[in-house]
Write a protein that binds this DNA or RNA. Structure first.
Lengths: 204, 204, 204, 204
DNA sequence: AATGAATGAGGCTTCATTCAT
DNA sequence: AATGAATGAAGCCTCATTCAT
């Protein structure tokens, strides 16, 4: 059975995605769940803690996934980029709402928690930058002569921005979007990947 | 002399960028300017109007600039892309705060105004998409076989995301960032542009 | 072993002394003891009952002590005054916190209990007034021509006020303070008492 | 015309005297005045500030009065004591409610203001102690051999306690109570004062 | 004996806004 | 042009208490 605790988290994700942190009141959350304000405070010390609980469940696992890709020394930089985009866009597809919260609302945390979350975002950014640097080392044509920081931010912007326009029930699927992003960045240099990818899709 | 009207706009930009629409109160604005709440309402009918006035001054001119580029039939698609990025990133550099507001806080408008702003964003997006389509028509290697909508969103994400990480006093200048974005998207296919650009810089 | 029941009483005394009745919440009490709110209600019907239990244990015994002194027909009024002060100040020293509660927080009782406690304070006051009257009857110089009610209140004020300034670990001991109070009131008329008292101290 | 500001102060004095600081809600104050909660906050930043404003108006003037007496080098210690008691008891009669607040509720201030008020009470206490010491220097029989701190506290207790039992409309007048307090402390040594005092009363 | 879940009432405070001056 | 007074609505949160386990 779904507990009120879980229902509160779920309702908060939805509401804060639509209305933002400050635009979502405890009353709205309570109404959405069908309980009283008091009950919300029975489960969570305060409003910030609700958002914190949501992000605490998501952020570490997202970073873990990326770390695994980056630290796999058997992979080429390009391969890592490909996997990162697939990994990241899959998250956007599956947990777009939470990513949305992480990107937009974590800045409303109090000092302590905000620093934690800004740090976690810096960590994530640093991992992406690592991929870019490796590609620049290995490849001759891709990202050549460019500032890794700029490139990494460009990649992340391209991917993260999708939380604003991607429609779950729309015509585009996340896998397809990810592959297109990859192609934009690598300019079709390894089109083999695209074919291989769509074949492998059959076997899943 | 700077009028209170202007001071209110300026203070609101700063405060809403840091705290969001709901996180910025009329009292905060008044304090920041050094006037009373009442005076704020003397100049603006209500809170929403303040944000509206800020965006109304910025958005049309931004769209105008883009329209000029897109409608110039003497330009190739690639050239339009180059100019769009330069144009857009210059805006981010000069008016990053306002773009920030436009992207993040316009969703808090009431129904009527929100629709207006969503429409203006759709217009902007359509213009960008037009550039992508033109490039696909003209070029053989760039954006080949990709969904124009995805590409346009990727470009806009790459660019807009910079409002979150670009530091005005930092080491990177907007011109440089714009050129790197262009290169990422075109994979250095027209490196001539980069050279030409840095030369032209001397003559300006 | 100290039961939770006792721990709750102890914590409540401390907390209410520092924060007052309204300033002390069940949550604070529970936290202070290291149990849950529910457990507090398991032991006490409601908040008022906790305070009631504390005072019910103390007040009757205090009154009893005073009654014994007053009703001992073998004692002179001055002797009764001396003993009352010693008795009362010893209570302040040993149970200052509870006296504090009795004096300051009993007014927050509900109607019924408040009346009980106000009555108990009237009883106490009447006993003290009895001592004053007896002194006026027996002595020529002490309290002569004064209103017994005023004198009794003066004595009680002098004594009770000490809960606000007496420091348990300070330089002054309650016995000494009591003797000085006695001397102030009797103006050293029976200094013999003081000598006798300090000698008797050796034999105790 | 009496402003809402003043009405709020007046209502707060009465309510907090009866119900204490924590027992008095802003709603109660608003109701008592006949305004809304919001209006209370229009005039006072927060609840604490209301109490602060009340005490800030009273405390300094009370201390000033005492200082004048103590610093008048033409007066004997006994005369100062007499005047102090009259001064202090007159305050109790006229502003008993505020003294009550000062003594009982100032402890609920936040750290900063509490320290200010505790210091102001220490100052007051020190002045009283000064009188006691002067008497011990000048007189042979009064307060002889006693700890000045204890005596000063005894005097203050005797006087302050009266806020709890003095009834404005009762049979006793403050002048009479003050004179009786004086006689208790000095044991009728200067009965002349009492006569003189009651005569002077005629001429007023 | 002890606790977790739940809640209605209320507490302090902020907010956007109106009105009279 | 600017402000002080006033307010209704709402916001976050605490409180004492009940109930089922």
């Amino acid at each position: 059975m779904e507990t009120n605790y879980d229902k509160i988290l779920k309702a908060t994700i939805e509401l804060m995605c639509n209305n933002g942190y400050h635009g979502t009141s405890i009353q709205m959350i309570a109404d959405n769940v069908g309980i009283t304000k008091s009950t919300v405070f029975h489960h969570f010390k305060n409003k910030e803690t609700i958002l914190l609980s949501i992000l605490d469940e998501y952020v570490p696992s997202a970073t873990e996934g990326l770390k695994k890709i980056v630290n796999d020394s058997s992979l080429s930089g390009v391969e890592k980029l490909k996997r990162f985009i697939l990994h990241h866009m899959k998250l956007v597809g599956a947990q777009g709402d939470i990513i949305n919260l992480n990107l937009r609302e974590s800045r409303y945390f109090g000092d302590k928690n905000r620093q934690i979350y800004e740090e976690s975002q810096r960590v994530y950014a640093r991992l992406v930058r690592g991929i870019v640097v490796q590609i620049q080392d290995e490849e001759n044509t891709i990202f050549k002569g460019l500032n890794p920081k700029v490139v990494a931010n460009a990649i992340q912007g391209m991917c993260n921005w999708s939380v604003l326009w991607y429609e779950k029930e729309g015509e585009l699927d996340m896998d397809g979007i990810a592959r297109q992003f990859y192609q934009i960045l690598t300019c079709g240099i390894s089109e083999a990947f695209l074919k291989q990818k769509s074949e492998s899709k059959l076997s899943v």
